[in-house]
Amino acid sequence: MQVDPFGAREIFVGFANFAQLLGSPDYRQSVFFTLWFTVIQAVVTIALALLFAFATDFVIRGRGLYKSVILMPYAIAPVISGVLWAFLFNPAVGPLAQFIQSLGIPWDPNRRPFDAQLLVIVASVWKHICYDYIFLVAALLAVPQSLLEAAKLDGARPVRRFFTISLPLVTPTIFFLMVMNVVYGLFETFGIIDAVTRGGPAGATNTLVYKVYQDGFVQLNLGSSAAQSVILMIIAILFTVLQFRALERRVNYQV
């Protein structure tokens, strides 16, 4: 439906909104970028979080301190963290940007789409690592000590113990986190994108959810935005169903 934002006027246009979206090359490009952005940040976030969780579980000293520090970014208001990242990597004044440039890399997210995409991925991963980390630490703690002791007595080294015992036991949590990461990537990253690149340059970092937000909320084009939300939901549902079918089989629920 095409609506006037005030609700005063509505024209039922059937599937015209959908047709227009699917026919537009910009939309298709968004879909493409969204998919690979989501997958990459989901995988990277979990991998890093797992690494940190394992390390935290392993070290005895300073465990509490590390946990607190690594969890801190989660406490920052999203509105601030987005702005901070944009600023830090701003090619003109950002300290980190200048650092990168001093290494000889021509960093400029305003004119190089790849830089912008990279920045958006890094910012999203940074914000979301805490979420994965917290659950992985909790899950690793739930691994029964008795099993680990037994394995140690059998002569298994720590890394081996991790891969053969701890990891399989935390697969329910990993599965949960994969699904959540995908959902996060698909839906909740628009705050970051809005602060860091605004979907630019030239639509390079325009994910689907950002378009929904832009079109619906900012442009008040409620009809198109609703159509986009529907498409986005369908994609999300497909992703999730796929994950449930393919991965849940590998998840060990009972010890």
Binding site: P91, A92, T197
Partner: peptide, 11 residues
Amino acid sequence: IAGQGLSPEQL
């Protein structure tokens, strides 16, 4: 271009 995170006025 000032880019995000920086206002051009500041430049």
